[in-house]
Computed example of a mutant assay.
Amino acid sequence: MFNRILAATDSVTTPDAPVVTAARLARQHHARLYLLHVMESASTENRRWIRHYETGMEMIAGTEYEQTVGRVLRRTYRDSISGEEAAVRVTAGFPWEGILHWAREIDADLIVLGPHSTRAMEKGVVRIAGLVGSTVENVVIRETCPVMVVNHPANTQQLRFERVLIPVDFSRSCECAVCFAARLAANCHSQLQVFHMIPVLPVPKYSRSAYTRDKAGALKRLESLYRPYLDGLDHRYIVRAGSLPHLEILNAVRDQNSDLIVMGSHTKETGGKWYPGSAVERVGFRAACPLVAITDPQVLIHWKGRLADTVQKEADRKIHVSTDADALPPSTP
């Protein structure tokens, strides 16, 4: 399934969640792990003008320093990686550029990142609640490989992916997410939890009859669009009404005890680039379990199968708001 997993970290001396999780995942799937540290510079003229990882002293990073940092990284993660299990690379530049360059060089089939810098205070970066950070955003925008966002180290049990939640809004990228999750489930024997939120306007009343009607319509659309991928797999559809997708998704993850979230990157494409979208960013920033962001059909290049040929080319992909003009989700739908 996974053969080459790339994990990037900006922490040299302290283990962080993405690398620990990537190492466990690589071990479970007998994959090769590639550990990357990109040395950032505040200089626009010389990207090798950096601060020493330990003393904070400004210096020019040479080959000897890169080798030293590489050895320190191996010591830092000695409980997670050992021997020939992982390749370690230290380089200078913009983190997202370094990640993309190595991912394409090794033909990675999964990239594992943290939602924001672990050294934000040190670098003078202000963390903005709900945003996954510029590195994740720039990688998702430009990379077709699946990108996993990890807040907390995932344990071995969680990485079996027994329960996978896929939030969908009927967009093309969400269809790619369902296809990816289906291939994952075929390998991991996962239960797939396909989740859809009926957007409800923030006005005084949303009747139960309206909710029942909207839910029936949503279930029909889910079955019609995703059945080609889910036939023969353990799956269920979950429909709720709400106005804030990221909160409803996080509530569903908690209620369903999900081990993994798989999300399409966004509902639209602009200028050939796919953007993470607010739901992906807000869920990725808060989720207790890993989240995999899927961009476009090219993400499936390493997987058997593509988007189902049986799906109608003109499928209804509009996000349908509630049919009731006065709408708020019922307290117990």
Results as ranks from 00 to 15, higher is better:
Q28M: 15
M121V: 15
P329L: 09
D107G: 15
N3F: 10
L230S: 03
C188P: 01
L233T: 09
G284N: 05
R142S: 11
V90D: 09
H189Q: 15
H37D: 04
A252L: 04
P297A: 07
E66Y: 07
M197C: 14
T267N: 14
P276N: 01
A17E: 08
A92R: 06
Y206M: 11
G242H: 10
P115W: 07
Q193L: 14
I111K: 04
D309Y: 07
P330N: 12
F285G: 00
H30Y: 02
S258K: 05
R286A: 14
E314Y: 05
L73F: 03
Q312E: 14
W303K: 10
W96A: 15
L6Y: 02
G264R: 01
I99F: 00
V194C: 05
Q158L: 15
T63M: 09
A293H: 02
E269S: 13
F170M: 13
T310D: 09
L192E: 05
L33A: 03
F94Y: 11
F161R: 09
Q193S: 10
A252N: 07
Q193N: 13
L260N: 07
Q193V: 15
S173W: 04
N46A: 12
I319Q: 13
F161M: 08
F2M: 04
T44M: 00
A325D: 09
P167L: 09
C289Q: 04
T156N: 09
L159C: 02
R89N: 11
P18H: 05
V125E: 12
H302W: 05
T63C: 00
Y229V: 01
Y211W: 13
D259H: 08
S171K: 05
Y226A: 06
R51F: 08
A7I: 06
E64W: 10
K215F: 11
I294Q: 03
L159R: 01
T135E: 05
A293N: 02
T332F: 14
D16E: 08
R306E: 14
I261C: 10
H320N: 03
E58M: 13
A120P: 00
E248R: 03
Y211C: 02
K313S: 15
Q67P: 02
A210D: 15
S80I: 06
A23P: 01
Q28H: 12
E58V: 11
S190I: 01
V262A: 11
R48E: 12
N3M: 08
R160D: 06
S82P: 00
N251Q: 15
D109G: 04
V203R: 14
D79W: 10
Y211K: 04
T267M: 09
H52S: 06
Q312W: 04
P167A: 12
V132C: 06
V200F: 12
S224C: 10
M59R: 08
R74C: 09
L291E: 07
R282V: 00
G62L: 05
R47I: 11
V20Q: 14
P146C: 02
L300K: 04
P297L: 09
Q298D: 14
P329D: 05
T267I: 10
A26G: 08
A177I: 11
H29N: 14
T14V: 15
V280P: 05
A241Q: 08
V203C: 12
I60V: 15
E137W: 00
L291R: 02
I111M: 13
L300M: 05
T332E: 14
R160P: 01
G277N: 08
G271N: 14
T55P: 12
A181L: 10
P228N: 03
V140P: 00
H266C: 11
V311F: 00
